[in-house]
Design a protein around this nucleic acid. Structure first.
Length: 862
RNA sequence: GCCCCAGUGGCGGAAUGGUAGACGCGGCAGACUCAAAAUCUGUUGCCGGCAACGGCGUGCUGGUUCGAGUCCGGCCUGGGGCACCA
């Protein structure tokens, strides 16, 4: 099929039409939201984009989904807030500055302007007055104030912490930026470094963040589970081991106090204070500790690392037996920031402990016996496998005979009785380190003074504005190199002091933007309390699954912290969440495994794929997520330019449910384009009675179409409520097919056709808003469809007077019969048994039982 | 290793435990056309049959039920999340 050229003959003129309606919506201010007391509100939000310069297909899908919801809810009578903005701080802007010698601010603002135009061409129903860009002081000044309030509330602290340090770039790297132990950009070996960093106390809310997941009923189960795992609550005990020949004690954390009698060693992390102390007098140990610290914290580094330990020579005393001592090792598999950075090892019932014990010849003692196969543990350990299952305690004195859970409780009771420790809950979740040695971020509003220590910037001096006169010619943080910016006087003592040159992690900005939209014009406060109380929480949030943990968890934390500081009245930011799937597209690879663009591939003489230039064989790979590296990206701009926004939007909605991955295909977009034209042609060519003509007599066929029409109206509404957009599209197409079958020249049919086309325009309004307006206007509808109400189905037409009932014999379908609706069971049974196919299938045997499900099915059992 | 999700025509996908395959894509046949595109009509799960019709079909396997794509048990395959977390 030929590509549309925009303007030609009897074709729908996409470009002109879409631009015209976008202008009309803007002039009539259709999407500007104001507080209307008493009117039910609906806040729909899509995750705001990073301004990379161009929108991609993922954006098109995300914003189409949100726009359908926004327009539908508006038509249903809700006061809808639907804003858009820019997550504008971040590393790509700095990279562009270094590579192209353009200032991050200029690069970002130009990208925003370009992307705003692209989004506007999609016809999205945003209240553009509320647009925010997080890189502007008008935005970030408020988060500096929040930080100071969090500081006052005890939710912020500064701590020395081990980080991934890139010695070439002179900055901290996130775990994701460490690839095979090297900096992702410099390629330098990453080191662990102890650095002073700002932390937000997300762990303060760990239990509430976990418990409240149960209240998020409109979140996908999957996301709730991921957050639950991420928070990672585990119940156990903290206990103190005495150290032989010393007066201090060593604290360990365990979830298996029931296995204490199986202990063979104690291990501490390489960066445990005790390790540092012992290393000071032991060069070999010092070298071992240094080796552990050189090891990256990336996943790859961990996976390849072998368990290693160093015997410190120090002994720990068993808490239940003063005569029993255990060797203390420094071990590379013990993490300083989980529990207390120290463990006891029970080789028989923990895999890591067994691996370690086998390597250093520490032995093992079985202390749990499985209920069945009592020799299983010996066999497993002989194969190098620890037994971690259930059973009864053995070789454990006062615990003997108790089940694992009972033994845990009893061991803790004894420990608490002896004053050696207590029951405790430990979380995997760690406090959020927010310091970044980066330029393009929000300055952290504190000043370091030699005399006064760390001093918050006084509120009246906010915002601390990011200086724009910086250079990127040296590695490291440009703020640190700036000649004057960091030199300030201490707000306390007035003596020369130094500004904090670190900036916030960019997740900081995205943790509260949803609340800023409620009153973006307020300069004095982050948000107007009344506006926030009216609009929050977000009723429906839509975005990619990749943010299931970090962004969504940080936002949940932030909202709690803001509530506790009096900013907000709610603690959950997002009442409903829809996570959309990725956009995939076919890929091609050459013989040597290099990715190829689809345009480089043509069918060869024998039908197999070959390279267009060289004729070399090409393999068509499977459909994968669109990415530049795989060369399978389709630019939405070209699609919108050629087919129009409505076609792109329809395609995004019609083929797959929103949470599943969507395959981009040329055929699919062509199909959507054909349907757009078909609808337009139907309206343009139909001979219809004038609007408001009374309904003439209808033929039975016409009544049938009219029933279909009203059933569709009812079902599409239900589908949209449940975000079953693909089903809604299918039903509307089904109805279009029905309208196409109406006979021409019949007054009743023409009347139903008008009713049907009007309904179609309204039903497609949320999905294909431009075409819908065009149809609405052609049909003589009053005002803008964008402001019209959702249609109601006539309940009388939803009730069928006859139904098709399936007849089964022994569960196999043999016939279908028409029966009056709600016919009684006796009639259904009698009619069913009289069917020739039923009689033949029963082959003369009597019916043993007849199951009648009214209006559905009759099953004859012989 | 632990946790979760998904397997339905050639493809994307529909089916409150009740007629499997709605709707779309693709294919095939036809109409219109000098021809093509566009458009329209018919057909399209597989096997057998001219047909009426019959048989088989939702990853495999066992079960519950009058009836299972749907519920339960065991397995296989694919995808995702977490992970030296004590």
């Amino acid at each position: 099929m030929s590509r549309p050229d925009g303007i030609s003959g009897d074709r729908y003129n996409v470009k002109e039409t879409e631009a015209r309606w976008q202008k009309a919506w803007e002039e009539k201010r259709c999407f500007e939201a104001e507080i209307v007391p008493g009117k039910p509100k609906y806040y729909v939000l899509e995750m705001f984009p990073y301004p990379s310069g161009r929108i991609h297909m993922g954006h098109v899908r995300n914003y189409t989904l949100g726009d359908v919801v926004a327009r539908y809810k508006r038509a249903k009578g809700f006061n809808v807030l639907h804003p858009m903005g820019w997550d504008a701080f971040g590393l790509p802007a700095e990279n562009a500055a270094i590579q192209n010698n353009v200032h991050p601010a200029k690069w970002t603002r130009e990208n925003i302007a370009a992307m705003r135009e692209q989004l506007k061409s999609m016809g999205l129903s945003y209240d553009w007055r509320r647009e925010v860009a997080t890189c502007e002081p008008e935005y970030y000044r408020h988060e500096q104030k929040m930080f100071l309030d969090f500081l006052k509330a005890g939710l912020v602290y500064r701590k020395e912490s081990w980080v991934n340090w890139d010695p070439v770039e002179n900055t901290v790297l996130a775990n994701e930026q460490v690839i095979e132990g090297r900096g992702w950009r410099s390629g330098a070996l990453v080191e662990k470094r102890l650095l002073s960093q700002w932390f937000l106390k997300i762990t303060h809310y760990a239990q509430d963040l976990l418990d409240s997941l149960a209240t998020l009923e409109r979140w996908p189960e999957r996301v709730r589970l991921m957050q639950e795992n991420w928070i990672g609550r585990s119940e156990g005990a903290r206990l103190m081991f005495d150290l032989s020949g010393r007066t201090d004690k060593l604290e360990i954390f365990t979830t298996r106090p029931d296995t204490l009698f199986g202990a063979k060693f104690v291990a501490i992390a390489a960066n445990h204070p005790l390790a540092a102390e012992l290393a000071a007098g032991n060069p070999a140990l010092a070298e071992f500790v240094a080796e552990c610290n050189r090891m990256g914290t990336s996943e790859a580094a961990i996976e390849t690392a072998e368990k290693k330990g160093f015997d410190t020579g120090l002994k720990a005393v068993h808490p239940f037996d003063p005569a029993w001592t255990l060797p203390i090792y420094v071990a590379n598999f013990v993490l300083m920031d989980y529990g207390s950075g120290a463990i006891f090892g029970c080789p028989a019932h923990d895999q890591r402990d067994l691996d370690f014990a086998n390597k250093y010849g520490l032995g093992w003692t079985q202390v749990v016996e499985p209920a069945t196969d009592k020799d299983a543990v010996l066999g497993a350990i002989a194969k190098g496998e620890a037994y971690t299952g259930d059973g009864k305690a053995i070789n454990s004195k006062f615990l003997d005979g108790l089940a694992v859970d009972e033994a845990k409780a009893e061991a803790i009771r004894r420990i608490e009785e002896m004053g050696r420790g207590e029951r405790t809950i430990n979380y995997r979740l760690r406090d959020w380190g927010v310091s970044r040695q980066r330029y393009w971020g929000c300055p952290i509003p504190v000043i370091h003074c030699e005399a006064c220590g760390t001093v918050p910037v006084p509120v009246e001096q906010l915002p601390v504005v990011l200086p724009e006169d910086v250079s990127f010619d040296k590695p490291g943080n440009p703020l640190d190199h700036h000649p004057t910016w960091k030199h300030v006087d201490c707000p306390c003592c007035g003596k020369p002091a130094r500004r904090e040159t670190d900036t916030f992690d960019t997740f900081f900005e995205s943790s509260w933007y949803f609340a800023r939209y409620t009153s973006p014009d307020r300069d004095d406060v982050a948000f107007d309390r009344q506006a926030a109380d009216y609009w929050m929480s977000v009723d429906q949030y839509i975005g990619g699954i990749e943010h299931a943990v970090l962004h969504l968890l940080y936002s949940r934390f932030f909202t709690r912290a803001l509530k506790d500081c009096g900013y907000l009245g709610v603690k959950e930011p997002f009442a409903g969440l829809l996570t959309q799937g990725m956009i995939c597209h076919e890929t091609f690879k050459s013989e040597d495994g290099a990715w190829l663009y689809p345009t480089e591939v043509i069918p060869g003489p024998d039908g197999k794929l070959v390279h267009a230039d060289s004729g070399a064989p090409v393999t068509g790979g499977r459909s994968e997520k669109m990415s530049k590296s795989k060369k399978n990206v389709v630019d939405p701009a070209g699609i919108i330019d050629g087919y129009g926004a409505d076609t792109a939007r329809l395609f995004m909605l019609s083929d797959s449910p929103p949470e599943r991955d969507l395959d981009w295909t040329e055929a699919g977009i062509d199909g959507a384009w054909r349907y757009v034209n078909r609808l337009w042609r139907m309206v343009a060519t139909a001979e219809l009675p004038a609007a408001g003509t009374p309904m003439p007599d209808l033929s039975p066929e016409t009544v049938k179409v009219r029933r279909l029409l009203h059933r569709t109206i009812a079902q599409v509404g239900e589908d949209l409520e449940r975000f079953h957009f693909n089903k809604a599209v299918a039903r509307i197409r089904e109805m279009t097919n029905g309208l196409g079958e109406l006979s021409v020249g019949d007054a009743g049919a023409a009347w139903v056709l008008r009713e049907g086309l009007e309904a179609t325009a309204r039903l497609i309004g949320p999905m294909m808003p431009h075409l819908a307006e065009e149809m609405w206007q052609a049909l003589g509808g009053s005002g803008l469809l964008a402001q019209a109400a959702w249609p109601d189905a006539d309940p009388a037409l939803l009730v069928e007077d006859s139904v098709t009932v399936a007849i089964q014999v022994n569960g196999k379908l043999r016939a279908t019969i028409e029966l009056p609706k709600d016919a009684d069971a006796a009639l259904a049974e009698q009619t069913a048994l009289a069917q020739p196919q039923v009689i033949s299938a029963m082959s003369g045997k009597p019916a043993r039982k007849v199951v009648v499900v009214p209006n559905r099915i009759v099953n004859v059992v012989v």
